[in-house]
Amino acid sequence: MPEDHAHVQEFFAARAADWDRKFPDDGPAYAAAVAELGLSRGDAVLDAGCGTGRALQPLRAAVGPGGTVVGLDLTPEMLAEATRAGRDQYATLVCADVSRLPLRTASTDVVFGAGLISHLPQPAENLRELGRVTRPDGRLALFHPIGRAALAARQGRHLTDDDLRAEPRLRPLLASAGWRLLSYADEDERYLAIAVREA
């Protein structure tokens, strides 16, 4: 179920220092997901809920030195870990939440969100705000380095019908916020849903 901002911030603040050590093998999955986004040199990309910044290096490599990469997260402790890991060299890091993005309308070509959808307090409204900063025909990638079933098993729980990441829930949710789902993959080794911003 969606969480409120304070709970999300508290949850990730308590885990920030150990986050990268806890999930040391996710790098290739992030790089592979970024490779599927069709980014071009010079593009502008927002990593929404960037955490410790594991996607920032492959995003920078994809858009090149002339592109723009913004890593945005609600939790200062996560951004501090991104800086400690040297990932601030690949992006401008911003502490903000997805309900009020400090970005111009239609200023972004692609939004990348790793593990984001489950933590949005108001999913439809937050997805609309992500759409506001995305140009028409721009893309949104909702990613996780493991699929829904593998994640549920890791957390000792069962998949439920109210999971926003399930395709029957996600497709209409995205549509209500002005996005059209283009592709959907939910496999043990990754979760990747790509949507396009409707004009």
Rank of each mutant, 00 (worst) to 15 (best):
L72A: 12
L72S: 05
D73L: 05
L74Q: 05
L74V: 05
T75N: 09
T75H: 07
P76C: 09
E77W: 03
M78D: 07
M78Y: 04
M78C: 03
L79K: 02
L79P: 09
E81C: 02
E81H: 07
A82G: 14
T83Q: 13
R84S: 13
R84Q: 06
A85Q: 09
A85S: 10
A85C: 06
A85Y: 14
G86V: 07
G86R: 14
R87A: 11
R87H: 15
R87W: 10
D88Q: 05
D88Y: 13
Q89M: 04
Q89I: 08
Q89E: 12
Q89P: 05
Y90H: 12
Y90K: 05
Y90S: 02
Y90C: 07
A91L: 07
A91C: 05
A91R: 11
T92F: 03
L93R: 08
V94Y: 14
C95D: 08
A96S: 11
A96I: 09
D97Y: 02
V98H: 01
V98R: 01
V98P: 02
V98M: 06
V98I: 10
S99V: 00
S99K: 02
R100M: 04
R100V: 08
R100W: 04
R100L: 12
L101F: 05
L101W: 10
L101Y: 05
P102D: 08
L103V: 01
L103Q: 07
T105E: 07
A106K: 13
A106V: 11
A106S: 12
A106T: 11
A106I: 04
S107V: 13
S107E: 15
S107I: 11
T108K: 06
T108M: 15
T108I: 15
D109N: 15
V110I: 14
V110L: 13
V110W: 12
V111G: 02
V111S: 13
V111L: 13
V111D: 04
V111C: 04
F112E: 13
F112S: 11
G113W: 11
G113H: 13
A114W: 10
A114G: 15
G115Q: 13
G115R: 11
L116Q: 06
L116A: 10
L116N: 02
L116K: 08
I117Q: 08
I117G: 02
I117N: 05
S118N: 13
H119T: 14
H119I: 06
H119S: 11
H119Y: 09
L120H: 00
L120E: 01
L120W: 00
L120S: 03
Q122Y: 09
P123H: 04
P123K: 03
A124R: 14
E125T: 10
N126C: 15
N126F: 00
N126E: 12
L127C: 01
R128V: 03
E129W: 01
E129F: 00
E129H: 00
L130Y: 03
G131A: 03
G131T: 02
R132Q: 06
